[in-house]
Design a protein around this nucleic acid. Structure first.
Lengths: 234, 234
DNA sequence: AACAGTTTCAAGTCTACACAAATTGGAATT
DNA sequence: AATTCCAATTTGTGTAGACTTGAAACTGTT
């Protein structure tokens, strides 16, 4: 059989199911017909129904369990997806000209709070890199990053004067797990200075921890300039 | 044919491809073999390869174009997925006892800034609901919400003394589009009072706009108590 | 009534194949 | 040399059918 415009595609099914959920025809907790039955209704194969329902479940609308069937989630656990761009790209997308500047680098014993946070072994060393990202010469982000030397030995030879540590890391080491945290912090002397705002000002802050197969790779705190908004649509 | 443990599943293929990307065997921008070729290599059907590659593309590792083929994304545009729970569930997950309290409700002409933000027609009215969410009697979140009466006429009869406007809305109106923004704001007199913290303190803030098929439904500002962290792992 | 074993059903995944749609690259034409 | 057109290639999506897996429901036993 062909799938010309008269055929029901998995997208059509998704839309129809969504409409039924939204219209209340299939209210929360309702048990949906089985894939087999839906396949008959939409006159397509179960494969096609399966794809539609699987995706709707991934998107947080449905809950599926073998034998138990498919039901509508009462509180749609919809998830916001934030695409985390490179600062360079983000600045570009906002219409600015990107500029990078290294602030400081030094390597030494990881401070206690970092060792605790990343569960480091005693005596492990870390490279501490601080740098600035500008958008058309106004401060955009202050980055305060630690890179675990044992996990990334190449960092000892790295030169961060023209390439930021983030871009360098992406090119150099892969990662398997990330923990990303957003919070509001208060600008201390240093952050206020670099971001060109009054001390104690609220600063949108992102913390990012990256692992490679259980090995901690890097910890980064990113302080954003005043008025920064992290937005997503879905 | 059966798919017992000797068969290659789409998950195996995903893992293998990821390993090759991470090991550098398939570096950024590299053009991958076609699905046909991979199917031969993994001795499975193209359907199975297709599913693996499609999912990897959705997850931001690959870029696929018909005829052009599949290539490795240089800067893996990995996206963070935040599951946005109900405040009640979030408090529960953190081990607290949830309590809700209505602060104020009033309905009237939408203020100018709101009309501008939601592209309201002149003269549209909105219900303004302010409420508090507590975790074991300590302030957790202050919610400041507007609900567009034209889009949700039932709001005129709603009673928010025991059920929060968010939970009420979820039960009452569906939505099709959401814009979610995180930012750091400064606690004004009101917010500081409700969250029991000093004035001008940094406050992690979420703004959420919800539409139903182009119609604005609600605008909410949610101010979180001191020390709040929005975290995700991926 | 409680438990263990079995059946049954719905989703999960795979095979094998076909046609669709996009886009590239080269051939033919201007 | 530039442009238009066409064929080949690769991903996208569908059909049809089968086996697998997990969990619910039923069964008989203690």
């Amino acid at each position: 059989m062909t799938q010309s415009s008269d055929t029901t595609s998995y997208k059509d099914i998704k839309q129809t199911v969504l409409d039924r959920i939204r219209s209340g025809a299939w209210p929360p907790d309702a048990l949906l017909p089985s894939e087999q039955e839906l396949a008959v209704e939409f006159s397509c194969t179960r494969t096609t129904v399966n794809r539609a329902m699987r995706e709707l479940a991934e998107e947080g609308y449905l809950e599926r369990r073998r034998k138990a069937g498919t039901r509508v989630l009462s509180a749609p656990q919809r998830q916001a997806r934030f695409t985390i761009p490179l600062v360079r790209d983000e600045v570009g997308a906002l219409g600015g000209t990107y500029r990078y500047a290294l602030v400081s680098t030094e390597t030494g014993l990881a401070p206690e709070w970092l060792a605790a946070r990343l569960a480091l072994r005693p005596g492990q060393t870390a490279a501490h890199v601080r740098c600035m990202h500008y958008s058309t010469n106004t401060p955009f982000q202050f980055e305060d990053r630690w890179i675990i030397v044992d996990s990334v030995p190449q960092v000892e030879q790295a030169d961060f004067t023209s390439v930021g540590p983030n871009e360098w890391l992406i090119q150099t080491v892969p990662f398997t797990n990330v923990e990303l945290t957003f919070l509001a912090s208060r600008a201390d002397e240093t952050v206020a200075g670099f971001l060109d705002l009054p001390k104690d000002e609220p600063v949108f802050t992102a913390e990012r921890i990256t692992w490679l197969q259980g090995q901690p790779v890097t910890f980064a705190k990113m302080y954003f300039a005043a008025g920064y908004r992290m937005t997503t649509q879905f």
